[in-house]
């Protein structure tokens, strides 16, 4: 219950800060503070009645709401799939890496620093170019490189979105597991005769999850920005289309609020799981 209340308060605060930010561009354009307050009032009113909102796709206003939901779920699907895939792949690879000798791990870590530095734009470009190159060589089209009209693509945007988060998670997991395995309990359980893999899988992993939880918020924050780029580059008919077709404060605010909702649910649930574990540990 405490978590539910906390998440609700946080959600309200997020909405308030989004509304406050949404008035700023007008302030910059008109340099007029009173019109800023007007704008904020407008945005708050239209957030309370989202059914009345309209966007302007081809010079003809249409109601935002039924139109908006489908692309919204599409975008969220891409985002969450990429996030989960990146996390689980990184976990599996991190386990495999931890069984390697220390010198190999040092090489891997240095390589990861290099990969981590790739700008996201470069990653997207490389994926695009790789697909075209592969098609030219083998005439097998792995996936469409751009979405056209109604047809939806999943593989490429998910791939583009997951590469960098995967590298971040992977490096973080290796670093955390290494730190964990220097702690006394690791040596103790090894001394008791438990196998290294067993301790790694069941104890070390569990102890890294709290830090990973906080880290994953930063990763997701980064991913939402990337989603915008990916949708733009691959011409995907997702939420960014609405963001860009109509750059008004109200639309902006509604879309940002809608983007925030699934993550509140997601992280609220994860925090709930973590708190159950903590309570059980406190009881034990």
């Amino acid at each position: 219950m405490a978590i539910l209340r906390k998440m609700l308060i946080q959600f309200l605060l997020t909405v308030v800060s989004i509304v406050l930010i949404s008035g700023l561009p007008d302030l910059f354009l008109t340099k007029n503070v009173s019109s800023y307050w007007e704008k904020i009032k407008d945005v708050s009113v239209s957030l309370l009645h989202p059914g009345h909102l309209q966007y302007i796709p081809f010079k003809q206003p249409r109601p935002l709401f039924p139109d908006f939901l489908d692309p919204y779920f599409y975008s969220i699907t891409i985002l969450l799939t990429a996030f989960l895939l990146a996390f689980f792949l990184a976990q599996v690879l991190a386990w495999m890496t931890m069984t390697l000798p220390e010198r190999v791990r040092a090489v891997i870590k240095n390589l990861l620093t290099l990969l981590e530095s790739l700008p996201d734009l470069l990653v997207f470009a490389l994926v695009q170019m790789f697909i075209v190159f592969f098609y030219k060589q083998t005439s097998i089209l792995l996936s469409d490189v751009a979405s056209l009209g109604e047809q939806r693509i999943y593989v490429i945007p998910i791939m583009c979105l997951m590469i960098l988060p995967f590298i971040y998670f992977y490096k973080m997991m290796v670093l955390l597991s290494e730190e964990e395995s220097k702690k006394p309990y690791f040596e103790f359980s090894r001394a008791k005769g438990l196998r290294r893999t067993y301790v790694l899988l069941f104890h070390v992993t569990r102890n890294t999850y709290e830090t990973l939880f906080h880290f994953s918020k930063t990763v997701l924050w980064f991913m939402i920005s990337n989603l915008l780029l990916v949708e733009w580059i691959f011409n995907i008919d997702g939420i960014t289309y609405y963001l860009y077709s109509d750059f008004r404060a109200e639309i902006m605010a509604v879309i940002l609020v809608f983007l925030a909702i699934p993550f509140f649910v997601f992280f609220g649930f994860l925090e709930f799981l973590l708190s159950i574990r903590l309570r059980r540990e406190a009881g034990a």
């Binding site: 605060l13 800060s17 920005s225 989603l227």
Partner: peptide
């Protein structure tokens, strides 16, 4: 809590918008 509400607002979108 107030400040970490910014975690759910993607920086690039806000920066472009502003």
């Amino acid at each position: 809590q107030l400040l970490s509400s910014f975690y759910y607002v993607p920086l690039t979108i806000i920066a472009i918008f502003l």
